[in-house]
Amino acid sequence: MPTDHTLDPAVRVQGIEKSFRELQVLRGVGFDVSAGSIYALLGSNGAGKTTLVRILATLLKADAGTAAVSGFDIAASPAEVRRSISLTGQFAAIDEVLTGRENLALIAKLRHRKDPGGIAEDMLDRFGLTDSGNRRAGTYSGGMRRRLDIAMSLIGEPEIIFLDEPTAGLDPQARNEVWHTIRELAAGGTTVLLTTQYLEEAEQLADRIGILHQGVIIQDGTLAELQQLLPPPTEESVIRQASLEDVFLTLVGDTGRRAEPGGGSSAAADERESR
């Protein structure tokens, strides 16, 4: 009898392990991401977030475990996985000499898309960059650069987009711009897997949150489900709704304090671990 894959998760990760020499970065990571949802992988610097994303994007090989992206096994069908996804890394991969319009048209040509100019115009309009389309990308603000980077990633209409620390180093206004973009992607049916060290970002965006700590997912669930992990307030305490920060610090403790509420610390540790 044929198997119906329409209800399968867009991303399924089971028992992924990865070490770099004696350093064990991932120690049996597993979670599912539903199609059309936003899943936030939350963890402090060095937790293994970037390493995991690079494995799912077929840029690194896992030492053990399995994963399927859009129904394709990452080890057995890497080409099909790459056709199904887009990856936006921690730093905007744009050509600063070219204009925003030229960056988009270039990617459309490289993807062998018809009417690259028309695609560029559509993307500029979709991401609110039409008025700055003829400016060199090197003159863009941080939020504009990130939106252009995401727009370039979406040419070819991938089913799934991986966003690795999408707002690292951005000011609050630019961060809000990127958040709006991410929400619109999910509303349009794109599956979003994002990594973040910012508690507020996961709290604001994610349908489900996986807390990655010391190479494993220690908890996974909706914000409401994670809030239920905390003990009820005592009569002496002020009754308020538990925040994701409360949950994170209860589960991880002071060792995870660099997963900041509003952010500021560098994400370089996760980048280093993948080299």
Score class of each variant (00 low, 15 high):
V53F: 09
R54I: 01
R54F: 04
I55G: 04
I55M: 08
L56Y: 03
L56N: 02
A57D: 14
A57V: 11
K61P: 11
K61V: 12
A62H: 10
A62K: 13
A64W: 07
A67I: 05
A67N: 05
A68G: 11
A68T: 15
V69R: 04
V69F: 07
V69H: 07
S70G: 14
S70F: 09
I74D: 04
I74N: 02
A76D: 13
A76Q: 14
A79M: 10
A79D: 15
A79Q: 09
A79T: 12
E80R: 14
V81C: 02
R82Q: 08
R83S: 10
S86W: 09
S86C: 15
S86D: 14
L87A: 06
L87E: 01
T88Q: 14
F91D: 11
A92W: 00
A93Y: 07
A93G: 13
A93L: 11
A93P: 13
A93E: 15
I94N: 05
E96Q: 13
E96T: 14
V97P: 03
V97L: 14
L98I: 06
L98P: 06
G100R: 01
N103H: 05
N103E: 05
L104C: 08
A105F: 01
L106H: 10
A108M: 07
A108I: 08
K109H: 09
K109A: 13
L110T: 08
L110Q: 12
L110D: 11
R111S: 03
R111W: 02
H112T: 09
H112L: 13
H112M: 12
H112D: 14
R113H: 02
K114E: 13
K114L: 10
D115P: 02
P116N: 04
P116Q: 04
G117H: 05
G117A: 02
A120D: 01
E121I: 12
D122E: 15
D122T: 15
D125I: 01
D125Y: 08
R126P: 12
T130Q: 15
T130D: 14
D131M: 12
D131N: 15
S132F: 13
G133S: 06
G133F: 06
N134W: 10
N134F: 08
R135W: 06
R135P: 04
R135C: 07
R136E: 11
R136F: 05
A137N: 07
A137S: 09
A137T: 01
G138P: 06
T139F: 04
Y140E: 02
Y140N: 05
Y140T: 03
Y140M: 04
S141Y: 02
S141R: 02
S141W: 00
G142N: 00
G142I: 00
G143Y: 00
G143T: 00
M144K: 08
M144S: 03
R146D: 01
R147I: 01
L148W: 00
L148F: 03
D149Q: 00
A151P: 01
S153E: 11
S153P: 07
L154Y: 05
L154R: 05
L154N: 06
L154G: 07
I155C: 10
P158Q: 09
P158D: 12
P158C: 11
P158H: 09
E159S: 13
E159N: 11
